[in-house]
Structure formats: structure tokens, C-alpha cells
Amino acid sequence: MPGQPPRSHLYVPADQPRFLRAAPRSGADALILDLEDAVAPSRKDGARAAAVAFAQERAAGGPELWVRINEGARGRDDARALLATGRVDGLWMPKATAGADLDALIALVAAAPEVALGLLIESATGVLSLADTAGRAGVRHLQLGEVDLRADLRMAPDSAPGDQLLDWARGLTVAHTAAHGLVSAVAPVSVHASDPEAFRTSSLRLRGLGFQGRACIHPVQVAVANEVFGVDPGELADAHALLDLFEHRVDAGSGAFRDSGGAMVDAATVRRARELTGRADRTA
């Protein structure tokens, strides 16, 4: 859909050839080759080489290709290797906070302006430094990493899918995404991969909070994320109809008006319709 960010972001351990082969057929809008948490320390060099090879061999027209790099100096080496391919769409920085590591990564990405940067917010410091980090050059997505965040906050693991204990952090992530004009806030993974209905329920709630896509750790979650975070055809048709009516009213010199359902149409309603449809503002 025009102007729509990826609905699903599928994590793929880069050291697992079987998963790499299957990933392009998963239906995910974006793949995240994982060099960090999913890869044992002894396998990280091989995982980097596999990610580079995957990028070099990727077919045109497939899903977006992102890589979650490691922290620190190893992560900068990961970034240099992937950027040299000229075939990646973006890099995810784990445990992102303000500081020298972020400065160094931004400097590397600045040399490849076609490559985007995503920040994984996985600590209390990461959440509280969003005002400093979300607006940095090249940053296009924020993703909340709740597994690590819970550990950092000394909270119990998410034993009940869909709990609301981290809504404050979710709200801050969404708010900074909007305030800094980023492409989207990516909802956190669910470790309950064997329960697609619970994933659907929590995804619907996260969409209601303002997230525009979701990270997935299993292909079975991808179809659910695509459905929940996609644009409903009826909703899209209604948005086009509202914009048609709005443009007609503007041409007629009218300001505020009611839609076909009797609800008042304001600037925020029109802006949301433009985001859904990708239509330019011809009345400007």
C-alpha cells in the first residue's frame, strides 16, 4: 500500500542456513538477519559472513533486508561488512542509547544514505534517552525490545501474553516516533510463538496504541502481523471517499463539515486519511 511501513519484521538467525533459505518465502515485509542475541559467540564470525552472502545474493523485489548488528566494536565491524555489499536496506542497533557507540554507527551509515537505521530500545536508559536518540540523522524506526527491558527493570518475564505493565514505555516509543517524524514504531516480539491467537490479540492492542508493524520470531506470526497491521480494504475505500469529499468541500469554499456518518471532519482526520492512501494534498 502506498506510504505504508512494513507490517511484519521477521527475525532470522544468520547462522542458520535452513532459516535463511526459507525466510524470503515467509511473506514478511521485512527480514531482520540477526547477528546478535540469536547467535552464539563462537558462531558470530560465520553469521556475519552468511549475512553478507545473503545480502549479495538477494533477489530483486523481495522483502526489505535489515540486519541486527552486535554491540560495540564488533557491531561496527558488522556494519562495515554489510554496508560494503550495497544491498541492505537498514541496520538495527541493539540496546541503543545516546553515546559514542551510536555516534560511530551514525557516522558509518552517513556514508550510505540509502541505508536506514533502526534503534532497538531495550533498557531503562534507552527509553529515557529517546529524546536524544530518536531524532538523530538516518534513524527511521524505533523498536521496543521488551524481553531485555523487563530484565533491566527487574521485572518478571512476560508469562501472560498481552500484559499492560510496559504500556508507559510503549507510549513513549510511539510518541517519539511521531514527534521525530520517523517511519514507524515497531511493536515488540512475543516469545509465545506457539499461540497465534494470543499474538493476534496482543497485536490488535499494540496497533491501538499506535504501533504500525510488529517484530516476529516465527513465520507463523507473520501472516497475523500482516493482517493486523495492514490496511483494511473497506477502511482504505472510506479514506479515499473522505478525501474526495474534503477536496470537493474545499473547492466549494467550505471549512469544517461532517462525513457520510455524521462525524465532524477535522485536520487530524484528513491527515490520517492521507497516510492511509498515500494521496498528496492537492488543496495546499
Rank of each mutant, 00 (worst) to 15 (best):
D101R: 09
D101T: 09
A104F: 02
I106R: 05
A107R: 11
L108E: 11
V109W: 06
A112G: 10
A112D: 10
P113D: 02
V115R: 01
V115E: 05
A116W: 14
G118Y: 06
I121S: 00
G126Q: 02
G126F: 04
V127E: 09
V127W: 06
L128C: 14
D132V: 09
G135W: 13
G135I: 04
G135V: 06
R136V: 06
G138D: 02
V139I: 03
V139F: 10
V139D: 05
V139N: 03
H141N: 12
G145M: 05
E146F: 02
V147E: 05
V147W: 04
V147C: 07
D148S: 09
M155W: 07
A156T: 11
P157R: 00
S159P: 00
S159C: 13
P161S: 07
G162T: 06
D163N: 11
L165C: 13
L166I: 09
D167A: 15
D167E: 15
R170G: 07
G171A: 02
L172M: 15
L172N: 08
V174S: 00
A175N: 11
H176N: 03
H176S: 06
T177L: 01
T177K: 01
A178G: 11
A179L: 11
A179K: 00
H180K: 11
A187P: 09
P188F: 08
P188R: 05
P188T: 04
V189K: 10
V189S: 13
V191Y: 05
V191C: 08
A193T: 15
S194I: 03
D195P: 01
P196I: 00
P196Q: 06
P196S: 07
R200V: 00
S203Y: 08
R205E: 05
L206C: 11
G210M: 01
G210I: 01
G210A: 00
F211Y: 12
Q212R: 14
Q212V: 06
Q221R: 11
V222G: 01
N226I: 02
E227F: 10
V228T: 03
V228N: 04
G230M: 03
D232S: 07
D232F: 05
G234Q: 13
L236Y: 02
A237R: 08
D238R: 15
A239D: 03
H240L: 14
H240W: 10
A241K: 10
A241M: 07
L242W: 01
L243S: 01
L243E: 04
D244G: 07
L245R: 14
F246S: 12
